[in-house]
Design a protein around this nucleic acid. Structure first.
Length: 429
RNA sequence: UCCUCGGUAGCUCAACGGUAGAGCAUCCGGCUGUUAACCGGAGGGUUGCAGGUUCGAAUCCUGCCCGGGGAGCCA
């Protein structure tokens, strides 16, 4: 018997096929039973009657949610079936009977679901989110690969921090201290001096004790870095990348977006050019909205929400005060108090998804900054070497995958945008 | 870490000082086109833990544990 996946079922109308999957839903009205089976690619309703499938009909009462099974039957188009196709069941073989599956089609609290994340992944909503996540990651690689970037992996175990202020996960490394990477950027800078255009893509770790819908302690970041590039180049790559990601998801995952109830028009509106405003202009907008913040302070969640809700498309905010940003950022030649940096805020209140900058390429200035930020010199010696041997202006940025996925999917919290989220009070499962 | 809300049946919640309740899930029965099907019946509880106040505590007080929402920070 030919094994087919539900996503291809439309190509087999009238044929007898085998579906392998799990019981997703059960309904009976006496002489006719409906077994809805999911196989990871979709769901299909299997119709079971005494006449067509006496054995399966007799076994119906013993079926339970998430019992794994192999169903054979003839594919039929039927408007009454969810998805438009159904299987006239001939036989139903139980692979393994599931006992007391805890997640029912009814409502559950978030704590209950997070505790059972390993099972929650089976639901159609999580299925859609994970498929879109995979597409976002594929689109990131395709966009950069097609433009001559080389993927160069950065280490996860590192001797020093990238941004001194941020808390790091510390680990014992054969008697020495090592930290889980909070960014691949420093290594990217070395790699771009070797290969010109590079990116790294992997998990990063931040031991910040923060509990908001946009924070994880372990999250994935895409970080391109380009030798001889400036802030203008960063604007262009970042904008092109984000447009490409959205376009790809719209092109290949309309079904998933609809399943999530996403307002498609909001995504279709995402196209070049994006608005660019300076930090100073952002302060004026915030003041108009009644939010006064001191010059020099970074924006908080409230400020980001106001700014990102003000536009239909993502918006760049550039030239933040140097003192609000990381030690390695190049100052603006026209105003030494400003950094040549930019954040990209996603619309609809989603906030920051990208942070990037020109990097300091002058050895003396970088040494002074390390000192000003109170960072130890020794772990950064190799990084300083990059400024000793053919230093060039260069720039790069980081794109947060979970925040991007949450925005595209229209979900409130980043914890659903990663298969197994790590949060301040959760490392299980 | 701080602020704030919460923890009652397998799940989601009600009862707010006077005998512990509903819907769903589970089990039993009925129904030939259901869409989170529907109808009838049954079982199911040391009210997060420890102390205190009271004739009487799920309810009020104290401490602890666990979780939700938010903040500093950031992608």
């Amino acid at each position: 018997m030919k094994w087919v996946y539900v996503e291809d079922i439309g190509k087999h109308v009238g044929e007898e096929v085998c579906i392998k999957g799990w019981v997703y839903h059960l309904r009976s009205i006496g002489k006719v039973c409906f077994v809805v089976v999911r196989d990871g690619t979709g769901i299909i309703q299997c119709v079971v009657t005494q006449a067509d499938s006496p054995e399966a009909f007799a076994a119906f009462d013993s079926l339970t949610l998430e019992t794994s099974c192999e169903v054979t039957g003839v594919v039929r188009e039927d408007r009454r079936a969810p998805g438009g196709y159904e299987l006239l069941t001939g036989s139903l073989k139980i692979v393994h009977r599931s006992e007391d599956y805890p997640i029912t089609p009814k409502e559950h609290g978030i704590a209950f679901l997070m505790e059972r994340r390993h099972l929650w992944l089976r639901s159609s909503r999580q299925n859609s989110i994970l498929r879109i996540r995979a597409e976002v990651m594929r689109a990131c690689r395709d966009y950069l690969d097609e433009r001559g970037f080389v993927e160069v992996d950065a280490p996860i175990l590192t001797p020093a921090s990238v941004e001194g202020t941020t808390t790091l996960f510390e680990t014992d490394y054969f008697g020495e201290r090592a930290f889980l990477s909070q960014s691949g950027q420093l290594y990217n800078e070395a790699a771009c001096m070797a290969l010109g255009k590079v990116y790294c893509f992997g998990p990063t770790f931040r031991a910040e004790k923060c509990k908001t819908r946009r924070h994880l302690t372990e999250f994935w970041m895409l970080e391109p870095e380009i030798a001889f590039a400036n802030l203008e180049d960063i604007f262009q790559v970042a904008e092109g990348l984000v447009c490409y990601i959205v376009e790809r998801v719209l092109e290949r995952h309309m079904r998933e977006l609809e399943n999530l109830g996403r307002d498609i028009a909001r995504l279709e509106a995402i196209e070049s050019p994006f608005v660019r405003i300076t930090y100073d202009e952002a302060l004026e907008i915030l003041a108009q909205e009644g939010h006064r913040i001191e010059w020099g302070e970074d924006f908080g969640g409230d400020e980001e929400t106001i700014l990102s809700s003000a536009y239909e498309k993502p918006v760049f905010i550039h030239r933040y005060p140097v003192k609000a940003k990381a030690f390695y950022m190049q100052p603006d030649p026209e105003n030494q108090e400003l950094a040549m940096c930019t954040d990209m805020l996603a619309p609809e209140g989603y906030g920051e998804i990208i942070g990037g900058s020109e990097r300091i390429h002058d050895l003396g200035l970088l040494e002074r900054r390390l000192e000003e930020f109170g960072l130890p010199r020794e772990p950064f010696e190799w990084y300083l070497d990059l400024r000793r041997y053919g230093s060039v202006p260069h720039a790069g940025f980081g794109l947060g995958i979970e925040r991007t996925v949450a925005w595209i999917c229209g979900i409130r919290h980043v914890r659903e945008a990663i298969p197994f989220p790590r949060l301040i009070y959760r490392v299980y499962p």
